[in-house]
Structure formats: C-alpha cells, structure tokens
Amino acid sequence: MEQILANGLYLGAQYALIALGLTLIFSLMNVLNFAHGQMYVFGGFVTYTVVAQWGLPFIVGLVSSAVILAVMGALIEKFLFRPVIRKSKRDESTMLLAAGIAFFLDAVILLLFGEKQRGVPKIVDGVFNWDMRLIMPYDRILIGVLAIALIVGFIALMQYTKAGRAMRALAQDRMAAQLMGVDVDRYSMIGFALGALLAGLVGGLLVTITGINLGMGGPTSIKAFMMIMIGGAGVISGAIAGGFILGMMESIGLTVLAVYGDITYLAIFASLMVFLAFRPQGLMGKPWG
C-alpha cells in the first residue's frame, strides 16, 4: 500500500506539472495546444544536449530547457497563434495550427536530435528501501519534490504577481480584462511562454529518470488532455487535481489489476467516459466554459 501511494504521488506530481502548462494556455487563449507533448520532448532533448553532450551541470540544462522553450512559446504565440486568432473566428483553425506545430516539432526534433532514446546520468545515486515495503530511488524522490516545488512556485506566481493577476483576469473574461487596461497581446504571449516553459522544465526533469525519445510527444499530450478533462479545462487547481488523480489511478491499477493483464488504461478510459457523461466540465470546471 505504501508503495502504491508513493508511486501515485510521484507520478501525480510530474503529471500535474505537465497539465499545468496545457491548461494555462487553454484558459488564456482558448487554444488546445496539441504540440504540448512535443514541447516536453524538446525540453528533454535540450537538457540532454547540455548535460550529456556538453558536460555542463544538470541545473544549467534545466534552465536552458526552460529559457529555450519559453522563447519558442513566445514566438509561436506571436507569429502563429495571434494572427490566426485575429483572422479566424473558428476554433478549429487554432486546433489545426496546433496539430501542424506538433508535426513540425516532431520533424525538427528528428533532424536536430535524431531518432534514438536519450538519457542523462542519474543525478542522485541510491535507493530508499523501507523494509521492502516502500522502495523509491533517491533521484525519483528528488524529482518528485522538485515538481511539487515548481507547482507551488507557479501557484504563487499566478496569485501574487502583477503578471499572474493579469493572466487570471484574462482567463476569467478577456473582454473585461482588456477594458480594464490589461495588455491582452502581451499577457497572452507571456502565458503561452510560461506554458511552454513548464513543458520544457518537465522534459528536463524527467530526462534523468525516463529518458527521452521522439515518440513520447503524442502520448504525453494525450495524458495531459486526460488530466485537464478530469480536473476541468482551463482551471489551474483542476489540472493539479487531474494530474494527481491520474497518477494515483495508474499506480493503483498497475498493482491491483496486474493479474488481469494490461488493463489499467482500459479501466481508466472507461471510468473517464462514465465520469464525463455525468460531469462533462470536469471536477472544477464551470459548465458555461
């Protein structure tokens, strides 16, 4: 039981961090960023290049991932999403654009970093073993703690800074925020950059544990969408709740359902369908959007 809870918390922390960036972008711009998983992969490869190839400290790799992805996110918002949102009233225009960016990033990643699985050496050696009841490598504990610290930092930023307040105002009512003097273009760009930064940070953190490869983008995006569907699209607390719920469901399912074969995700998807039938807006989302 202790092992299940620990695995669930560890998975939940990393999932929540992935979902935060996605839900932030959705709340600010009403954009479903299908390229979020590819941004995560890009961040992982940046950390890999800096740490494993250039031999620089892990923290430099992590900061590089964050900065590069933030700049990438800002440029994507300014030159791709902003003109499309301005010219098209149809939601599917931005969805198609996001899907196109996902394919484009896949191709760029293949060209820049190649097709192989990559990883960086463990940042902390050793395994915590509590009488075989709870086994957790120290590096996972560290990454889990870092992920939770980043979530807390993100909440503090959204709660107590001018930019955070502006973004929350934008998320609540774009028109009202504009009338109150919020620079919509500026804060949309900052929001998108922050979302991409979070994707890059998770990629950089997890490359030490899971490694990274070209094919991880799509499944990561799917899991992130599941989390925000559980928690409620566009709600920060919902993304965090969705991440931890999915992590815990996965951990419990893999242990309890293992004897029946690989049916954990079958059970999760079936539960999600039933849940959405009763509460389509998710746990914390509002029925009116």
Partner: peptide, 18 residues
C-alpha cells in the same frame, strides 16, 4: 510470463514489482 506494460510507460517500478 503474464505481466505486460504500455509502450509509453514512463515508470516501470509498479509494473516490474510482481
């Protein structure tokens, strides 16, 4: 010989335990 895993699994600890 009955334990399997999803191809996109990122944490194999719970899968491998049994």
């Amino acid at each position: 010989d009955s334990v399997t895993y999803q191809m996109d699994t990122t944490d194999f600890t719970p899968v491998l335990l049994p």
